[in-house]
């Protein structure tokens, strides 16, 4: 499975946050959805909603469901609408740094992730500092590095968010 889509989505979130957008959309893929949900679990996103080419209405954003079934007829026009968070006039997502890219996939074993989450460098991955999150694609889904350590899995390192 290629990661270009998820890499682009991650970078798009950084751009949208820096542009101070409230709501933005990324392509509707399973990988993007998993990353968005992982970021939502980490508190980096306000909402994740699957919708059409137009922004979903506010109540749909709040509930996370616009009430429209995904069918083979409309799946191509579906997008994932994510709400961005701001605090004290600053975006919560300030920096997004993709680590794996289509030309070089970076993986981290459990041991690597354990070191990285303690703040030490391991292989290609620098240690996490205050307020940083690392998203890893594992066979248990896309997880935050600390979740992955908790679940004792390693995987493909997607991006680092702070």
């Amino acid at each position: 499975m290629g990661i270009h889509s998820v890499t682009n989505a991650a970078i798009h979130l950084q751009n949208a946050a820096r542009a101070r957008l409230g709501l933005t959309s990324i392509p509707n893929t399973k990988y993007n959805l998993r990353l968005a949900l992982a970021m939502h679990r980490a508190g980096l996103l306000a909402s994740v909603t699957r919708g059409g080419p137009r922004p979903p209405p506010p109540e749909a954003v709040l509930s996370g469901d616009d009430g429209e079934e995904v069918t083979s007829a409309n799946v191509a026009t579906r997008r994932i609408w994510v709400g961005l968070k701001y605090w004290n006039n600053e975006p919560v997502i300030k920096n997004v740094k993709p680590i794996s890219k289509p030309s070089r996939l970076v993986t981290a074993s459990l041991g690597d992730l354990q070191k990285v989450t303690r703040g030490f460098k391991s292989g290609m991955v620098q240690g996490l500092t205050l307020g940083e999150s690392l998203f890893v694609s594992t066979d248990r889904g896309v997880l935050e590095a600390r979740e992955a350590v908790e679940k004792k899995v390693g995987g493909l390192v997607l991006c680092r968010v702070s």
Partner: peptide, 13 residues
């Protein structure tokens, strides 16, 4: 310097 309290409040964690 980053403030851990602020980060926690911003993320709801």
């Amino acid at each position: 310097q980053p403030d851990p309290e602020e980060i926690a409040m911003a993320r709801g964690k």
